[in-house]
Each structure stands twice: as C-alpha cells, then as structure tokens.
Design a protein around this nucleic acid. Sequence first.
DNA 1: CATAATATATGCCCACTGAGCAACTTTGCT
DNA 2: AGCAAAGTTGCTCAGTGGGCATATATTATG
Lengths: 200, 200
Amino acid sequence: MDTTVGLRERKKAETRQAVHEAAMRLTMEHGLDNVTVEAIADAANISRRTFSNYFAGKEDALLYGEQRRIWSLVEAFRARPAEESTWQALLNAARGLYEEVGEPNRELAIQTRLVKQHPSLLARQMANHIRVERELSRAIAEREGLEPGASRPRVLAAAYLMSLRIAANLWIDAQPDESRRPSLLELAEEVLAEFAQPFR
Amino acid sequence: MDTTVGLRERKKAETRQAVHEAAMRLTMEHGLDNVTVEAIADAANISRRTFSNYFAGKEDALLYGEQRRIWSLVEAFRARPAEESTWQALLNAARGLYEEVGEPNRELAIQTRLVKQHPSLLARQMANHIRVERELSRAIAEREGLEPGASRPRVLAAAYLMSLRIAANLWIDAQPDESRRPSLLELAEEVLAEFAQPFR
DNA sequence: CATAATATATGCCCACTGAGCAACTTTGCT
DNA sequence: AGCAAAGTTGCTCAGTGGGCATATATTATG
C-alpha cells in the first residue's frame, strides 16, 4: 500500500475524534461533573479500558480539539517563509489559524467557557500550553539561530501564546449585547500589538 | 479576645503548613508517585479525610509553598506607593519577594524541579498562576483606574507573571558548572527588561 | 461561667478512576 | 497464507474525592 497513513492510524484518529465529540456532547448535556469516563466510552463505542489508551481522563478528551488547534500553530509557524521576521511569522500563523477555523466558532466558544468554569480543565489546558510553548520556543530558536537555552525564544513563545489566550478570554467576556462584538482575530491582533510596545 | 487571629485560624495555618512539609519530605524521599495521600496525612498526624479538608490532592499540598509565594506578589504590588509606575511597582514587588526569600533557596529549587518533571504538578501550578493573574489584573486595573474588562491590565499581569516563571526556569536550567551562575533576581530582571522592549 | 452556636476532625462509606496483566482480535508485512 | 506487531477488552485493585453523620474543639453570648 502507498497510502500515506495506514488503516490503523486512520482508525485511531477517527476513534480519538469520536471520543472527543462524545465527551463534548455529554458534557454539554449533563455538565462535566455528571459525566463519567464510562459514559463517554459507551457513547463512543469503546470500553472504559480502551478510553485510557486514548486519553488520560475526560478532561483531556474534552480538550482534544483545543490541543490540536494550538499545536497546529507551531507547524504553521515553521512553515512561514524565512523572509518574515519571527514576530511577523507568528502573527501570520495565528491569522491563518483563525481564518481556517472560521469566526463564528461554536465549539471554540463552548470550550473556552468550559475551561473558565472548571479548574480541572484549566489545569490540563495550561499544562498543554506549556508543552506547546517549549516546542515553539525551540522552533523560534532554530529560526533565529540561537541556542535553545537562550531567553529570547522563551520570551517570544510565551508572550505569543499568552496573547492568544488573553484574546480568547476577552472574546468570551465581551458581552453579546454590545452593538459591535469584536472578532477573535481583531482582539488577538490588538493584544499582540500591545505586546509589541514597550511597557511604561 | 482581640488577638488579630483566633486560635482556630492559627491552628489551621499550622496544620496546613505541617501537611505541606510532610508532603515535601515524603516526596523527596520516595518520589511523588510512591506517596499516597494517606501517607502524607499520617505523617502530618491527621486523618485521610481531614487531608481533603485542607487540600484537593497531594499536588496542592506540595505546591502550597509556591502558591503562597505567588499570591504574596499581589499583596506586595498593592502595597507599593502610588507614585511608582505600574511596571515599576511590579518590579519592586518581585525584588522584595526575592530578597525576602533569599537566594540560595533550596525549597524553591526543589519545587521548581519537581514541577518540571510531573505534568500533574505543572497543571495545578499553572491553574493557580491563572487565578493569581486574574487577581493581579484586577489590582492593576484599580491602580490605573481602568475598567476590569480592559485588555491592558490583563496583558501586564500576564506578562509579569510569565516573566517570573521564565526566570525560574532559566535559573533551574542554568548548569551549576558554569563559572558564574546567575542569581534568580538577575534573571528575572533580565527577562522583565526584555519584555519592556518592543518585539521586532 | 455556663451554655448555645459554630467550625473543625474523623470515621464510614461508595462511586469513580488509572493502570497492570493476560487473553483475544485486528492490521500490516512478506 | 501465516506470522509479527499493534490495538482492544475484561478483570482486578489500590487510591481517591467527597457526602453524610457524629464527636470534639473553639468562639460567642447571656
């Protein structure tokens, strides 16, 4: 066979996605605290034991979508042309993601709200954030030809991811009754711009 | 009685501290994975059930010291004179903490290393970081007379805490074989300064 | 000071969880 | 086809969080 990915991998990816969606649906229906791992596994047609092979807990299953989104940023950044400055490349990576995701993103909004309400979700999400930050820091160090231990890549990576996080929060907090609700992308650019200016 | 804090509160604080220390000791002896809540409770002379009244899990017990340290920053910031700029006040709050804590801080080093090795600890710590960030953001908004929903306080609070986190990581990563190991305070100032400059 | 009100500690209990193990099934490769 | 590798499942168990009731300690009040 010459399919890029074998049947095995494809099925795994499908199962993972199915579990994620089952977790989302059940959580929205009954609330995170009233959903057991067993219920999610049932809804996804796998055994409780197998669930453990895919995710470490229901929180991870829930956050799977968000995880993929964030990790894709690193990929997108690495794919930016070398002519762009690092910061520009990061900005463009974010733009690409937001355009691809589409603005009126229901799932993103729901997930962000969920994370805000449940400390256990917040914890897992931030832990993942840090892992992404490390990887992004490495990517930045490579692009700029710095040692991986330098401080600048870390600062850039952290500042960037943080900006996106803050933008998402601002977006969620924005009251829908305001006449003009800012788009997520606009907010992100605003926050990123604020970062690019010196603090006084 | 007019003692500022009653016996009740003092005892609670003592117990909390005792549990924290027991958790630290046992973890250093046997490794986090080989320590049960029951063992910690025993070592601190309380029942397993009572442990739950103090901490949500062994991770929280372990991170108690770090938590107090970070929360104290908010207090310190609020106590800075109004003449200082916000950023200056934040810097001085950090200086105060680091001076108070003292440089060759064994516990801080151990905790930072532990967090680096155990994702569950990392998750909890970051979740707490976010809570502190919210509170600090509120404090900044008050000081600058901004609405709590504005973006600038959030950006400042996040950038500040992130700087301290990065500094701690740089500090831990610094090889002790280097002739001159930078102090934590120096690293923090360096990172904070990097933030105060525009990104290119 | 006595006693009521309140907060804390503990024991008992149970549903949920993560993971090791071994048997079994599916997929990939030749 | 046939074997090896990877994935799935059931069984099991120690560990965990938390509700509830009870006992005990602290604080407030008359």
